[in-house]
C-alpha cells in the first residue's frame, strides 16, 4: 500500500478519480481500498487529539 499511496500523491488525476468513486486500486485489498476512499472522501470526522503516550 505504501508504494500505491506514494504514487497517488504524484498523480492528481488518479486521486481525482478516486475522490469521485470512479476507480478502485488494484494491488491493495478491498479493506485497504475502502479505508483509502474513506480518507480521501473524508467520510469520518477526524479524531480529536488523543492523549496517548
Amino acid at each position: 500500500m505504501k508504494n500505491i499511496i506514494n504514487y497517488l500523491m504524484k498523480d492528481t488525476e488518479v486521486l481525482h478519480l478516486l475522490k469521485n468513486n470512479k476507480i478502485c486500486i488494484i494491488g491493495i485489498s478491498p479493506e485497504e481500498n475502502k479505508a483509502l476512499i474513506d480518507v480521501v472522501l473524508n467520510k469520518k470526522p477526524q479524531l480529536q487529539a488523543y492523549y496517548w503516550k
Binding site: 500500500m1 499511496i5 506514494n6 497517488l8 485497504e32 474513506d38 480518507v39 469520518k44
Partner: peptide, 9 residues
C-alpha cells in the same frame, strides 16, 4: 495520508 489510511483500516 498513509498514516490516516492505516488508522482508517
Amino acid at each position: 495520508l498513509y498514516s490516516k489510511v492505516t488508522q482508517q483500516l
